[in-house]
Write a protein that binds this DNA or RNA. Structure first.
Lengths: 141, 141
DNA sequence: ATAATAAACGCAAATGATTCGCAATATGTC
DNA sequence: GACATATTGCGAATCATTTGCGTTTATTAT
């Protein structure tokens, strides 16, 4: 299952004409397997034994976001965290404030409200960002 | 009205024992009067004639966030934007993707969903971040 | 009002996450 | 199995933000 999710990303990468390199494979695996919001530096440390450069990690993350295979978490600190993401369906995440664990919220809760927001504010609505924060079962006191 | 909103912030600042200085007054005024999500650099440029240092703008923004008088917008780019905020009631914003104009969404749309999210994910929920993006009436094509 | 006093300021240097240039290497293809 | 090229690792560069420090300014008490 976890393997399959990584493999989906591998496949999409290649289908778009990108090479499936060692740094890309490893970053994708980590993001999927750990199910955590990770920083570039954390990925670099997790992959220390692989001799992958920090620059490649940044470049890979940029590519994954572009392809919809990862997304940048809401920032709370000076380092950006990244979350593995299935492309296609729009959805949201809850992130553990202690360990960074991520869970998906499978459908979008907000589309029904976009009309209300448009009427109230006079803005047209193109998108929204939503992220919940709390504690996963392991980190709850 | 606009003046009152700035004055509320002035008062809260002083009530908490902080001095109402020129940089603080000006930054608060700009954030309230422009009703836009602004970067530190933009504030510095807007206030160029006042001889206010960029460092003071950063320090003021940090203080305003701490006091709940401003909040950091969802980042989309390499500079943080800040939004004037009334402390007290939890609410959300919609930000114009072209000009940065901000409108308030007066109450929170998501509290009713927190139970659902908790049940589905097994996380306890402490908070959430939500921001809408679109175009204000002036920027809509 | 005026002086006393501590918080805040302006400046310039430091920090640190992220990006970039380039020679070397690894991937997918023929 | 060799080729052509995308991608890598390295180190240097960038640039938003933070910090140290001597000076200024907002508040409090005289």
């Amino acid at each position: 299952m976890i393997r399959n999710m990584s493999h989906n990303s591998f496949a999409l990468l290649q289908a778009r004409g990108y090479k499936l390199t060692e740094p890309r494979r490893r970053v994708i695996e980590q993001l999927h397997d750990r199910r955590r919001a990770l920083t570039a530096l954390e990925l670099h440390q997790l992959l220390a034994s692989e001799g992958i450069s920090l620059a490649s990690i940044y470049r890979t993350l940029e590519l994954l976001v572009e392809l919809g295979l990862a997304e940048a978490a809401t920032r709370s600190g000076d380092e950006q965290r990244y979350i593995a993401c299935s492309p296609g369906q729009h959805h949201h995440h809850i992130v553990c404030s202690r360990c960074g664990r991520v869970a998906d919220i499978t459908e979008c809760l907000l589309e029904p409200f976009e009309d209300v927001v448009r009427e109230r504010t006079g803005f047209t609505i193109e998108s929204h960002t939503l992220e919940f924060h709390g504690y996963c079962s392991a980190c709850r006191q």
